[in-house]
């Protein structure tokens, strides 16, 4: 049983400067409930792969299945929630209204919208802020609201494209901890794109190391760390060993290219 299954995926963009190989021969299986991080330098195709899963890009070769369906069918079935690097909250809606926007679009009735909105805002500890406007919240709180919005409609896959990339280290640490907690409670399958080695190692059950030109997978590391991870696990030898392996993978990818 796999949630996401990619077999020798190819994606080539035709540009004025000739074809760009964003993805070349990418094969990956993700089991339900896994936390998979994608790490690599810019242009390695990690975001592109996520966008393929979300049916925002169409691969030019290979097969990709999401929940046993094509990505576009999965999108129509609302199989995933997507969190972008920018929170993307609408300034004319309160936090509560922002979170219930996907529910409105999906046709949930009013009572259920309110019930779900409060439930997911509680999950990200923003319940008291339902009537505030986005500009009244800090960047970290805005990003939490955008995660709540992605969780609101019970998709069992969460796609996160550098969600904490624009936040400072301290806020990022706290949000990482909260995200792990959220993952443990909701049992979602999470695909997470990041630039940060500690973030990837701390969060993931599986780390996918990618390298550019052409965008490809150079290493897939199954993390031996337990699911329950306090922040200071980052000082243990196991953690440092995985981090070292990720760094090596990134270096090899750069040298080969």
């Amino acid at each position: 049983m796999t949630t996401i299954s990619a077999q020798s995926l190819d994606l080539t963009f035709q540009t004025a400067d000739g074809p760009v190989h964003a993805l070349r021969d990418v094969s990956l299986n993700v089991a339900p409930g896994e936390f998979v991080s994608f790490i690599g330098p810019s242009g390695c195709g990690k975001t592109t792969f996520l966008r393929c899963v979300a049916a925002l890009e169409t691969p030019t070769g290979g097969t990709l299945q999401v929940n046993g369906m094509t990505p576009d069918e999965a999108r129509r079935a609302r199989a995933y929630g997507y969190v972008f690097q920018a929170a993307g909250l609408y300034p004319w809606r309160t936090i509560g209204k922002n979170v219930s926007l996907p529910l409105e679009i999906m046709g949930y009735d009013r009572a259920e919208r309110i019930e779900r909105m409060h439930r997911v805002l509680e999950l990200v500890e923003l319940d008291q802020f339902a009537n505030k406007y986005p500009w009244q919240l800090s960047g970290g709180m805005q990003q939490r609201a955008s995660i709540a919005r992605a969780l609101a409609f019970d998709a069992d896959i969460l796609l996160m494209d550098e969600p904490f990339g624009a936040l400072d280290e301290i806020v990022r640490d706290r949000l990482n901890e909260e995200l792990l907690d959220l993952w443990a409670r909701t049992q979602k399958t999470i695909l997470f794109v990041t630039h940060s080695i500690p973030e990837a190692v701390y969060l993931s059950t599986k780390i996918v190391v990618m390298s550019p030109r052409p965008g490809r997978i150079t290493d897939v590391i199954d993390s031996p760390l337990p699911r329950d991870r306090p922040l200071d696990i980052r000082d243990t030898p196991e953690f440092l060993e995985i981090a070292h392996r990720v760094r090596e993978g990134l270096r090899e990818g750069m040298e080969a290219a």
Partner: peptide, 11 residues
């Protein structure tokens, strides 16, 4: 990104 978000909700 805003338009992509709408697309992920199949709006």
């Amino acid at each position: 990104a805003d338009l992509d978000l709408m697309r992920t909700w199949n709006a």
